[in-house]
Design a protein around this nucleic acid. Structure first.
Lengths: 319, 319
DNA sequence: CATGTCGATTGACAAAAGTCAATTCGAGCT
DNA sequence: AGCTCGAATTGACTTTTGTCAATCGACATG
């Protein structure tokens, strides 16, 4: 963070107000400025992450159901949002919780890796500005130039901005038209380096995609409806960082995957803490596939999804 | 933290207010309680560390002088409080800054070790309630039952309370009347274990004591004026965790030190991050001794002390 | 069963914080 | 020097928050 000279006074105001507990008029008096300026500076301080206000996410862990999911699938931690409509708007609950959980997990000097999608973008949006130091945010997969407002590079950069971190973008498309081109591109040093760097991360944030006709891969134009149907016939059950996986969680052996520039699954699994966020109730099948592939260690989802997960676990072979 | 049933609603109120940014009356409406209750719950949430408000301490690092001290003495980080009277009361500035720096340094699951003294107690007092998990706070040296209000065990316990941590006290006096008894006591399993545990910490908080007639060791009755004079004649330059050190930073070879139950110096130096806090301007000589002994890696002190340190470094052999 | 006690809760008022249009300041240009 | 434009700052007003005495209600006790 480059320190502009005016930052100094913002810092001082924040220190006096939040740390020493002075009132705004007292701060104003001491710094010889108007109280209105103090109020302005304090807002800036909050936005810049000079002041950090965070709420414990314990509430969402302190739940029998969450523990049952942890035990059933061997996950490190599960956070659930209840039915009770604790959010301002119901749709905001999962991203807000995920953002808080994620920020708590990011450590100074850490290297985090983020995927993209509607959910990840919403998380970025709900994320507080935090005053981390030396954090690097890297993209997990190639980009898609698209009419979509939540492009992958925007996700990365927005998250980096909130964490006061350095953002590293992937300078490649997500999916290419031929397998040959994808292979060649993957061997380009710039790309190679980025791909190799994913395994060095200590934290990952991602979601699993569904394969409905209105799902993300379709909407952003990575895949046609025709191709989708074929992939489903081949056994595709979900999407991880753009790549198709089967119900067993393994990379699907298909042309589409071979045309992809994205994180190697072993590299993803080499990351010690991997936070999966699932918002939509329709994503049970993809989520189970992601569990089978051991893609994540931490999970944020809804109570209703958790119930279905536990239920499924009780009788893994449906009648 | 044991969750009382009423904590649930405090959590919810805090989440809605701080994370979702609702107003108090909106929170009240949603939770079906009066707004006054919401205000009350929010205060409790802040006090319990459910909500964490922390201010960046960058301001105090962003200082040429701090860098010069870091370079001159090979320290990791130095924070300085300026002359400008940024504090509510000047005397509160150092403890408040130190408390904030310290809390930032404490990591979940960590093991921290604290010494005691007027300054450490003031730091404990200025410390925010933080929502850490799995932290252990251990005492660095034996206790002194005394008329003093800042007894070592109080320091430990207060800091533990603020960090939502487990506090481990030393069940031994700081100084005994004979060397033999001290030696025997050190070999008691309970004590041995505590002493050995100090080297396993990843963070330490302590100060260096002076040897004036009104200094801490005298006031709390650990030492008589007579003894003090003798120790000074022997070359005592400062006090670290109760023990006398010479100007070279080495443990002074004296009867007093041998009667002491306190952390082994090698154990202290085995702790990777050690935060030294020096408030009083008279402590230049003790601080230089502590530097010579490589007792600390991080330092919080005043600008004026920093100036004298740098000055001293420029001409280490005074005319 | 009335009564006392204590903590939780509330209504009403006072204090503090947020907001915004108007004004001042200051860098860059003529 | 005088002028222009945009950003920083402020005073005045509105909204939100903090506080505290009064009240409620659960539970224990004579």
């Amino acid at each position: 963070m480059a320190y502009r000279p005016t930052d100094q006074i913002i810092h001082k105001a924040a220190w006096l107000y939040y740390t020493h507990g002075l009132r705004q008029d007292e701060v104003a008096q001491r710094l010889n400025i108007s109280r209105a300026s103090v109020a302005l500076y304090l807002r800036k301080a909050r936005e810049a992450g000079i002041v950090n206000i965070s709420t414990s996410t314990h509430l969402f862990r302190d739940d029998r159901l969450a523990r049952r999911v942890e035990d059933a699938f061997g996950l490190d931690t599960v956070w659930l949002t209840g039915e009770e409509g604790l959010a301002a708007t119901p749709a905001a609950e999962i991203p807000t919780l995920a953002a808080n959980v994620f920020v708590e997990m990011v450590e100074n000097g850490g290297r985090v890796c983020v995927a993209w999608g509607r959910t990840v973008y919403a998380i970025a949006d709900a994320m507080n500005y935090a005053d981390r130091e030396g954090v690097t945010v890297v993209e997990m997969c190639g980009n898609l130039g698209s009419p979509y407002s939540y492009r992958p590079d925007q996700c990365t950069m927005e998250i980096a901005r909130r964490l006061n971190a350095r953002g590293l973008n992937f300078y490649a498309p997500l999916v290419l038209s031929t397998e040959k081109l994808a292979r060649e591109l993957r061997e380009e040093p710039v790309i190679r380096e980025q791909l190799d760097g994913i395994g060095d991360c200590d934290l990952a944030l991602f979601t699993v995609g569904a394969l409905d006709t209105d799902s993300h891969v379709i909407k952003c134009g990575a895949l046609s409806l025709d191709e989708l149907a074929k992939l489903k016939a081949l056994g595709a059950a979900g999407v991880i960082a753009g790549q198709m996986i089967g119900a067993d969680g393994k990379l699907l052996d298909c042309d589409y995957n071979r045309r992809m520039i994205s994180a190697d699954f072993d590299a993803i699994r080499a990351i010690p803490r991997r936070l999966m966020v699932v918002q939509e109730d329709e994503k049970l099948e993809p989520l189970l596939a992601a569990i089978a592939g051991r893609f994540f260690t931490h999970l944020v989802t809804t109570s209703s999804m958790a119930e279905r997960l536990v239920e499924h676990h009780a009788k893994p072979v449906p009648a």
